[in-house]
Write a protein that binds this DNA or RNA. Structure first.
Ligand SMILES: [Mn+2]
Ligand SMILES: [Mn+2]
Ligand SMILES: [Mn+2]
Ligand SMILES: [Mn+2]
Lengths: 219, 219
DNA sequence: AAATTTATTTAGACAAATCTAAATAAATTT
DNA sequence: AAATTTATTTAGATTTGTCTAAATAAATTT
């Protein structure tokens, strides 16, 4: 099934708002999220209902059908992978990527996203730490730790960054730390809380507690 | 000035068709190129005329104004850089990229394309050999020759291909001829107009006049 | 030169996505 | 419980981009 840009935005929005709460998604929540009028939301929701993508109960709210959810997850996957691309490859700061990925998510090509996924090293989650659905639409929750909490000898993959600032992203770039990099904890220095690590079993560096507190690791 | 997707497609189309011929671009040529009805073309051309992006003379045809040309070149730059990305980074074949780049060219972000340009190593031309306008919209033309016109002993770099049919691209792939390959003319055969060449000082092959007529060389 | 064919424009319609203003339902306050 | 406020829907309008069918202009053939 192919959707228009607007339909895709609505489907993804419903999905994301549904994740945050149990109940049906309200018209105003949608209007707020998408910066459109409540009237427009009602309009589109009714269209999506007629297409079997959502279940809509007047004055109650909306929820995704299985088909709608499947579509929403595909769009979210595209959105998140493009975010990884923008941060990891083009060195954008966090604040700038949302608007661009919001456009890129609509690019329609069967093979493009899977190639992008591979090119990016099959990242586990977006720069914001949101888990990226796999090509089958499955969302696999791996446990995650702060790099701070890894013990000596342990290793894992950099999967998200908690700090937004350009300064931090630049620091990471300079130290060859990127999403998908393999980090091994060599030694934890008691005195100042810093950690000796290797990146991709190659570069050995020491990073401070402030750094390890802002890096999320999966196995 | 910001344009809609459709406007951008029209502007780029007029630019590309204008490059191939001296005279005004006709309605049918546009309709053919964009796979839309002649009536739709006339409609949109009139809108673009009212916005000062094209000069349109009824029944005669259309040409870009300076403002229109500036916009068209920006879109073309985006289109070509995304093509490089798709081939160079995501390993798409030349035949698959057109449709995707046709979508990606509409992504709107001031900094995105310049970062992409840098990420790709500031390529001189697209996979099809079309020169990529720089960030200022300047198109710097290096001199190029048909491979046919190189004399014996001369060598140069494959920088463009005049025929982008799948058949020709497949032929080139099979013979290890690619953009950036170094070709040296070993001998020009008078009898049938064919040429003996080496590719990257490695493979020695004979190619026909029809082939050399479709390969452009820079030094 | 007239007839015919081809190219182009105009007219009228339509779908998609949005808006504002008015109507109505639901929730909250008094 | 009634009044008021808030949320939601409906009605009507607008913009964008497209189409088909009919009208007209330009080019070509007879
Ligand atoms: Mn985001
Ligand atoms: Mn979007
Ligand atoms: Mn192309
Ligand atoms: Mn396009």
């Amino acid at each position: 099934m192919k959707h228009t840009h607007a339909e895709e935005n609505y489907l993804k929005a419903i999905y994301m708002l549904s994740e945050k709460q149990e109940s049906l998604v309200s018209t105003t929540a949608m209007a707020d999220f998408l910066h459109t009028s409540a009237a427009s939301i009602t309009d589109m929701i009714q269209k999506l209902h007629n297409k079997g993508l959502v279940i809509y109960r007047k004055y109650q709210g909306v929820t995704l059908t299985d088909r709608g959810k499947e579509s929403a997850i595909k769009i979210l996957r595209k959105y998140l992978l493009w975010e990884v691309f923008l941060v990891d490859k083009l060195k954008f700061g966090w604040s700038e990527i949302h608007e661009i990925a919001e456009q890129l998510e609509h690019i329609d090509c069967d093979t493009l996203i899977d190639r992008l996924d591979h090119f990016l090293g099959n990242p586990y989650c977006s720069p914001h730490g949101i888990v990226i659905p796999n090509a089958d639409g499955k969302i696999i929750d791996k446990p995650r730790w702060l790099l701070t909490d890894l013990s000596e000898g342990a290793s894992g993959i950099v999967s998200a960054i908690k700090d937004d600032s350009v300064a931090f992203l630049q620091y990471l770039g300079k130290r060859n730390i990127y999403l998908g990099a393999k980090i091994t904890v060599i030694e934890k220095i008691q005195f100042d809380g810093s950690t000796d690590i290797t990146i991709d079993n190659q570069y050995k560096i020491n990073i401070s507690r402030k750094i390890t507190d802002n890096i999320l690791i999966t196995l």
